[in-house]
């Protein structure tokens, strides 16, 4: 039972990440491979605020999201100058730079040693220290994020985003300042990812830079490509599928070194196969 709760918590965290990236990649058509950077910033800000300054978890989530928003505004502004494959490469670059900062600013992040002993959240004396209550908290947040994303995608703002994806010049002619829209959705996606990071830090109670590499960004990207771009239910489905998949492989009974690689192999192969035979994913409406 404890094991199932663990999987459900991880599934919810990755659902939040997938939804956040889907808004950027799926709805707006910006192939961003830097989501793990924002995930990491959220996690680190929460971890530092909780361990060093002893600030309440819910306040540090908000502060983490604000700091991530500031950073993503800067990154998004630079990225907005790029198009197509260069956009993907540039975003790649920012992920590497942010990872280097986690790894090397020893005084702030303790570098490769990581930050241990992060507290579980508590609110007005109500503690979420056992896994079940934590699951409820994460699940509620995931649902909230889902509803926010749903609201965004159905609003007139969301329709503009989809038009940018389909034909940016056409909507520019109608007088929409498309770079503002792209920047705004990039920042919103980054803030959502930072919320996921805060939950991750507080759940595992330990973080180190190795969680927030490019591989993590590619993993999140494969979730939304598998589930379907520009489809929120697809993101949820993809997250659940790719979280459960390695667990199934674990029961097949490979030795641990091989099992860990099997997981990487399977999602890499999935990406290739999907690109060849079903580029829109399971439920998607948009092909990359």
């Amino acid at each position: 039972m404890e094991y199932l709760i663990h999987l459900a918590i991880l599934g919810s965290i990755y659902t939040i990440l997938a939804i956040s990236l889907n808004l950027v990649v799926g709805y707006t058509g910006l192939l961003s491979i830097t989501q793990a950077a924002f995930y990491g910033i959220g996690a680190y800000v929460t971890a530092i605020l909780l361990t060093t300054y002893d600030i309440n978890f819910f306040i540090s989530i908000v502060l983490g999201a604000l700091i991530t928003a500031a950073v993503s505004l800067l990154i998004g502004y630079v990225l907005s100058k790029f198009k197509g494959d260069y956009y993907a490469l540039g975003s790649f670059g920012f992920n590497v730079i942010v990872y280097s900062i986690f790894l090397n600013s020893q005084s702030l992040t303790r570098g490769p040693l990581g930050i241990p002993g992060i507290d579980r959240p508590n609110l007005f004396g109500l503690s979420f220290s056992d896994n079940f209550s934590f699951l409820i908290l994460v699940a509620i947040s995931a649902v909230l994020i889902f509803l926010i994303a749903k609201f965004i995608s159905n609003s007139s703002f969301g329709r503009v985003l989809k038009t940018i994806r389909e034909d940016e010049q056409a909507i520019q002619i109608f007088g929409y300042k498309t770079h503002q829209y792209k920047l705004l959705i990039f920042v919103i996606g980054a803030m959502m990812a930072s919320v996921a990071g805060a939950f991750f830090a507080s759940y595992i109670t330990f973080i180190d830079p190795s969680t927030f590499t490019i591989n993590e960004s590619i993993f999140i990207l494969s979730i939304i490509i598998l589930g379907g771009l520009a489809n929120l239910r697809g993101s949820v489905l993809g997250a659940i599928f790719l979280i459960l998949l390695p667990e199934v492989l674990r029961f097949v009974g490979f030795p641990s070194e091989i099992a860990a690689q099997m997981r990487v192999l399977v999602y890499g192969a999935l990406l290739v196969i999907l690109m060849m035979y079903r580029p829109q994913g399971l439920l998607g409406e948009y092909k990359l």
């Binding site: 192939l31 494959d85 993907a88 591989n215 590619i218 990207l221 494969s222 490509i225 070194e257 091989i258 690689q261 099997m262 990487v264 192999l265 999602y267 890499g268 192969a269 999935l270 990406l271 290739v272 690109m275 060849m276 990359l288």
Partner: peptide, 19 residues
């Protein structure tokens, strides 16, 4: 293209580690 080639990269890397 870029996504599929990233997939190939991760697959080959995993196979190298296994062997």
């Amino acid at each position: 293209m870029i996504v599929a080639s990233l997939g190939v990269l991760t697959v080959i890397q995993a196979i190298i580690v296994m062997f």
